Simulated assay, not measured.
Amino acid sequence: MLDEMCRKEQGSTFTNELYNDIDKMIVEKKISMENAILILKHIGYFKMIKNIWMCGFNYSSLSNMIRLMIIEEEEKKEEMNEKRLVDLCECYLLHGGSNSFVIASICVPCLLKVASNKDENEEVQKEVEMELLALSCVPKYYKVEQRLHLREIKDIIKHHQEHHNLTRLAYQSVWLFLVRRFVLNEKFEMIITDELHFLREARGELEDLEKCVDWKRKEILKENEERKKDMKNVSMLIRWFDVLETFLISQKKSTRKCDRLIMGMDLLCRAAKYNFRDFHEKCIGTFQKMIEKRTVYVDELVRSGVGDSFLEWMMQSTLDDGLMKCYLRFVAKLFKRLNQRTDDDFKEARQRFKKRRMLERMEEEGFEDEIFSISCVLFYFKDYYDPPNNLFDYMLFW
């Protein structure tokens, strides 16, 4: 039933009332705690692989009950039921429980212990996938005991790189957990890039997933099994873009190590434009944040073809206003970066050359008039669109 729901139906299902009703059923013994845990784990798994984010659980009585049960179980020490504690932690994290640093300090070591199991048995690996998926839900602002857990995370990643024992979802999840910890500790950057080869691994995963999707398959075939398989792989790509976005905007210094990765991201963004709108918008958002955070050299974005892609998309007559707003924002921010002065005369000259080349292309395509017309409309509807400041200065005059 969950798999057949559209996004609107999903949004009206995972509400505060739903979780309160489950809590009431447990209290009134209409459903056992064991069965409630089984249902919650199944729904939580579904929500994560479908990239559905709703906060109804956080404000429910069920959230409070599970949080108290986790604390009580952990306090038993020697008499603690580890399997029950693992199940409770999974339920809490998979449903977005994110208002307790105490729970994170209990759940992270508990789940990592199970996730470190290297047995290649299919049932064991399914359990490992669930633990790592739950760990990937730990928000980036949760400061867990990094020095204690870094060894386990590195061991899980290195073992997979040698033996390929993890599922695709499990491997993505462990990277998301590690990269979110990097946000609070820039010392992780050397470990992530040089020791664990994150950029290489991410590029390989994107390339493999790109081959698994029929990008020309129309969205009208929602009931088709092949379409469902495509959507599952696209959901995985969206999750990988979450990892990349977190990493690329969290670096303290700009990097020149990711030009091939950016080209791959651009190709995926192009492929998704017509039949996978959610993923296309995710790509746009990631590029916008990369421009804003200045963690990627702007000439790499131009050289990789990202700027040309956005100009090309803006020229299409069938473009809706939502996408046009996104494209305009990116191009405006790109021109602003290309227009900035630097201490390096060569770098500044190169940026001016790239900007001139893009403007000449716009002029050749007769695009300047279109930009001017769109700019006038955006200016008129400024409160609705909230366009970037000085749009004309960034895009027309230099």
Rank of each mutant, 00 (worst) to 15 (best):
M5H: 13
R7F: 15
K8M: 10
I31G: 06
M33G: 11
E34R: 09
N35M: 11
I39Q: 08
Y45Q: 13
I49E: 08
M54G: 11
Y59M: 07
M65W: 05
I66T: 08
E73H: 04
E74A: 11
E75A: 11
K76T: 00
E90S: 00
S98V: 04
S98T: 06
V114N: 01
V114L: 12
V138A: 05
E145W: 10
I156A: 04
H163G: 03
T167R: 01
F177R: 01
R180L: 04
K187G: 01
D194E: 14
L199H: 09
L209H: 06
E210K: 08
D214K: 05
R217Q: 13
L221V: 01
K228Q: 12
D230L: 12
M236R: 15
R239H: 09
L244T: 12
F247M: 01
Q251E: 10
T255Q: 09
C258T: 10
G264C: 15
L267I: 11
A271Q: 14
K282A: 02
C283D: 06
Q288V: 08
M290H: 02
T295P: 00
L301K: 07
S304Q: 11
G307V: 14
Q316P: 05
R329M: 10
R337N: 02
D344T: 07
D345F: 04
F346D: 05
K347G: 01
A349G: 02
E365T: 01
F372H: 09
P387M: 07
P388L: 10
N389F: 14
F397W: 00
